[in-house]
Design a protein around this nucleic acid. Structure first.
Lengths: 207, 207
DNA sequence: CGCCCCGTTGACAAGCCTCAACTTGAGTGG
DNA sequence: CCACTCAAGTTGAGGCTTGTCAACGGGGCG
C-alpha cells in the first residue's frame, strides 16, 4: 500500500481484512511493527507529518477506508473530544509497542510466539473475528517470525512445540487456542495493556 | 520514582539528569523502553489513564518537574495548539519505539549497541549535553544491556569490540564517538526518526 | 578494613540462524 | 489433462551468537 519514505494525504483505516506496518533495515530484514485488523488505523503518524517512516502492506485482500488529512485537521481544530480520542489511540499504540519491545527483548522464542498469539486472539475477539477460541489467522510463518525477530524456520519449530504442549492447533490458517489459561501463564500474558475496556470503537463509528 | 501498576496525579518532566521507563517480565528481566533526558516527559500516558503500566526510575540524581494532571486537562480543553503538541510528542515516542523494536528484533548486538549510542548522542546533543562528540553518559553496562535485550556481560564484550574497531571510546562514564561517519554506517543509523528539526522544545517553554 | 557495585575475562552450554533438501498444494500454460 | 513453477511448510546438520556460571580486580563508602 505505501512504501517507507513516501508521502500520503490520507489516513488508512482497515475496514475488513488484515494489514501490517513494517520497517526494513539495510540487510533487507523486515520487522513488523504492528498488525492492523478491522477498526485499526494504519498511519496515525501522518496526521501530523506527511512523511511516512514505515511501509504498510495488506496481508490478505482487504477493504481499506481512505480518510483525507483535511478531515482529520478539521477534527483537531473543531472537535476536542475526538481529538482526545486520537490522542488516546496514539497512547494505546505506545502501549502495544512497549509490550512488543518487552516481548522481543526479554522472552525466549516459544514464550514470544505464545504471547503474540494471545494478543492476536484478544484483539481479534474484540473485532468480532473469533468463534470461541478459534480464529482465521491469515499469516504465514514468515510473517509471524518477522513480528518476533526470528526466522521462518525457527517459527515453524516453535509452532510445533506449542502444538506438542497442547496449547494450540494451527492448520490451514485456522488457529485454535486449546488451553487459554495454560497459554496465558506460559506466555506471561496480561491483556491490560490492550485497553479494550475503553471506548476506542466509538471513534470509528463517529467518523 | 513510580512502580508498575500504581496511580499518579502528575506528569513528570526531566529538567536535569537521566531517567528511564522500563518493564519487568515474570522472570524478573528488565526491558528499558526509553531513556529520558532533560526536556522529555516520562509518562505522557497518564494524561489519559491514571494507571501506569511501566516503572520509571532516575538513573542519576535528577531534577524532575511534577505537572498536575489538572493542568494538562486544562490544556486539552482550552489550548488546541498545545494539544496538538502533546499529540506530536506521543507520535514521536511511537517513532522511537518503532526504531527500538527494529533494533532489538533485527540487528546483531554490535550494530544494536552502535545504533543506541548514535541515538543517545543525537538526542543529548539536541538537549545541549554534548561537547563536540563527547558526552557524559551515566549508564552502567547493565542498563545499556537492558535497553537492547542483551546481558551485561555481552554488553561488555560488544563495547570492547566497538572500541577495538576505533568507533568509540567509553571510559569512566565518558562516551566519545571517535568516528561519527563510520559508526553511522556501521549501525545503519538514520536520525530522521527522531524528528529533531521540529519544534518540540517549544512546548516545554510554553508550560 | 570489609562490603558492595561495577567492570573484566574465560569456559562452556544453549538458543537460534544458515544452508540445504524435500514435500505439498495452488496456479498457469501448453 | 499434465507438466511446470512457485509459495509455504517441514526437517536435519552444523555453526555462530549470546547466555550462564564463575572467578577476580578496582573503587567508593561506611
Amino acid at each position: 500500500m505505501i512504501r517507507e519514505g513516501n508521502r500520503t494525504h490520507h489516513v488508512y483505516l482497515v475496514v475488513k481484512g488484515w494489514a501490517c506496518r513494517y520497517r526494513t533495515n539495510s540487510d533487507g530484514k523486515i520487522q513488523i511493527l504492528n498488525y492492523q485488523i478491522p477498526g485499526d488505523f494504519c498511519n496515525l503518524h501522518t496526521t501530523l507529518t506527511q512523511k511516512i517512516e514505515y511501509s504498510i502492506a495488506t496481508l490478505v485482500p482487504s477493504v481499506i477506508a481512505y480518510i483525507p488529512h483535511g478531515r482529520i485537521d478539521d477534527i483537531y481544530t473543531h472537535h476536542s473530544r475526538l481529538t482526545r480520542s486520537f490522542n488516546w489511540l496514539a497512547l494505546n499504540e505506545i502501549s502495544i509497542l512497549q509490550e512488543w519491545l518487552l516481548n522481543v527483548g526479554s522472552r525466549p522464542s516459544h514464550q514470544r510466539l505464545a504471547h503474540l498469539l494471545c494478543e492476536i486472539l484478544i484483539r481479534a475477539r474484540a473485532a468480532g473475528l473469533t468463534e470461541d477460541h478459534r480464529l482465521h489467522l491469515p499469516l504465514t510463518q514468515t510473517q509471524l517470525g518477522e513480528a518476533m525477530g526470528i526466522t521462518q524456520i525457527h517459527t515453524n519449530r516453535v509452532l510445533k512445540r506449542l502444538q506438542a504442549e497442547r496449547l494450540i492447533t494451527f492448520d490451514d490458517r485456522m488457529l485454535t487456542i486449546t488451553d487459554w489459561q495454560g497459554i496465558k501463564e506460559y506466555a506471561d500474558f496480561d491483556a491490560r495493556y490492550l485497553h479494550l475496556d475503553n471506548a476506542e470503537a466509538s471513534l470509528v463509528n463517529d467518523l
